[in-house]
């Protein structure tokens, strides 16, 4: 049985965002939109997390750090970019300190638009991420089987 659907652990990464998305993600753990009812937990250490939420356009200083955090996560992992800045860079992409979009630093699986997106949208994205995690899990299983056969 695949248990990853029942307990997604979430870690949030602030890649030079403006706080708007962060406080909306934070709202998810509060009484009104409690996501712990789906078994999701907010983890401080990226090593424990299954889903990495990235907010904001990635600037030159956070670029390296985002990569490190991504590498620290255990397989299988899903990365979610929250907000317009995370998706396309918004207008920040014209800034001198923002040279790339977030998806050129780490592979992003789910894009959540909005400035900032409503908490309901983020919950929906987390649910979609669970389906994706299951898919990824099955894929790695298949690959492992192939590898052992060879």
């Amino acid at each position: 049985m695949n248990m990853i659907r029942k307990s997604p652990w979430v870690s949030i990464f602030n890649a030079s965002s403006c706080n708007g998305c962060d406080i909306e993600v934070l709202t998810l753990v509060t009484p009104k939109y409690d996501i712990e009812r789906f078994g999701a937990q907010w983890k401080m250490s990226p090593r424990h997390a299954d889903i990495l939420i990235v907010t904001g356009c990635t600037n030159e200083t956070t670029k390296k750090r985002l990569k490190t955090v991504y590498d620290q996560m255990a397989h299988d992992k899903v990365v979610m970019a929250i907000g317009t800045c995370g998706n396309s860079g918004n207008f920040w992409r014209f800034c001198y300190n923002v040279k790339q979009r977030t998806d050129s630093v780490v592979p992003i699986d789910i894009y959540v638009p909005g400035c900032p997106p409503r908490p309901e949208t983020i919950i929906d994205a987390v649910v979609k991420a669970l389906a994706l995690l299951k898919e990824k899990k099955n894929e790695t299983k298949k690959n492992n089987k192939k590898a052992t056969k060879k």
């Binding site: 695949n2 248990m3 937990q41 299954d50």
Partner: peptide, 26 residues
């Protein structure tokens, strides 16, 4: 805390998930 909270079997799911996961490199 005024929340709904996880189902009471949640830690079992967590543990089963952790056993299925790979380790991260440290």
């Amino acid at each position: 805390q005024n929340r709904i909270g996880p189902p009471i079997t949640q830690p079992i799911y967590d543990i089963l998930k952790l056993f299925q996961k790979k380790k991260s490199d440290t």
